[in-house]
Amino acid sequence: MIIVQSSHGKPYSYRVMIVEDEQIIALAMRKMLMNLGCEVCAEAATGEAAVAEAAKGRPDLVFMDIMLEGEMDGVEAAHRITAEYEVPVVFATAFADEDTKSRAMAVSPVAFVAKPLDTRDLSAILEKLPNFKPGREKA
């Protein structure tokens, strides 16, 4: 088991929520995040659940898959989470159609990362989190 150290030499100790409808992918992410020192405080498979969990758990960061089951997609959920609870979001998808991508950009996410994520992607995101101010939807 490789423990990836943060740049300041300490493990990342953020409370992270994972929104992912593929449970195996969610599990792999949980393992990776835990290896980086984070606490996965909540997991959700749908947008609605994600909003509810975010309200309940108030995580430091949300990893959000865009294509979700149910009425609410990841962008919509991320919009509500950032707007209502000021929680920064990472979209865990590199590619999306242009319409979705522009909607996603309106949320001002911390990053877009291509799935499947690996440890290196995650540590890079966690590295820049302290300086990140979760944005509001512009306009």
Binding site: E22, I24, I25, L27, A28, K31, M32, K115, P116, D118
Partner: peptide, 13 residues
Amino acid sequence: KNNLQIISSLLYL
């Protein structure tokens, strides 16, 4: 893609 990600995740796990 999802399935491939799942395979990748499985390998990781």
